[in-house]
Amino acid sequence: MLTVAPGPLRPWFTPERPGPLVFEHVARTGHGRVRVDRWPDPRVVVAELPGNLSLRGDPEHLPSPDLAELTGFVDAPPEWLPALRASDPGTAPWDRLIAVLPADAPTPEPDPDVRLLTSDDAPALAGLSTDSAWIAETWGGVAGMLAAGVARGVLVDGKIAAIAVPFYLGGTYEDIGVVTEPDHRRKGLSSACAGALIGDIRARGHVPTWSTSPDNLGSRGVAARLGFVHERDDVLFALRTPIPTS
Score class of each variant (00 low, 15 high):
M1T: 10
T3W: 02
V4I: 14
V4W: 00
A5Q: 13
P8I: 12
P11W: 06
W12A: 11
P15A: 07
E16T: 02
G19V: 02
L21T: 04
F23E: 02
E24G: 12
G30H: 04
G32L: 09
R33Y: 06
R33E: 15
P42I: 01
R43M: 06
V44E: 01
V44Q: 12
P50W: 06
N52K: 11
D58W: 01
P63Q: 07
P65W: 02
D66E: 15
A68S: 12
D75K: 09
A76T: 01
P77Q: 07
E79H: 15
W80S: 07
L81G: 03
P82H: 02
A83S: 13
A83G: 14
R85I: 08
S87Q: 04
D88L: 04
G90K: 00
W94H: 14
D95F: 11
R96A: 08
L97H: 06
A99K: 08
L101Q: 15
P102A: 15
A103C: 07
A105Q: 09
P110E: 08
P110R: 06
P112I: 03
R115M: 12
R115K: 07
L116S: 06
T118C: 10
S119V: 13
S119P: 14
S119N: 12
D120N: 12
A124D: 02
A124W: 04
A126R: 05
L128Y: 08
L128R: 03
T130M: 13
D131N: 06
A133N: 12
W134N: 11
A136I: 02
T138Q: 15
T138A: 14
G141R: 00
V142Y: 07
M145S: 02
G149D: 11
V150D: 08
R152M: 11
L155A: 08
G158T: 14
K159D: 15
I163F: 14
F167W: 13
L169R: 14
G171A: 11
G171V: 03
E174A: 15
V178Q: 10
V179D: 15
T180G: 11
P182L: 08
P182C: 11
D183V: 12
S190M: 06
S191Y: 14
S191F: 09
A194L: 13
A203K: 11
G221L: 09
V222W: 14
A223Q: 07
L226K: 04
G227F: 11
E231R: 07
R232N: 05
R232H: 06
D233S: 13
D234N: 04
V235H: 00
L239A: 05
L239V: 01
P242A: 08
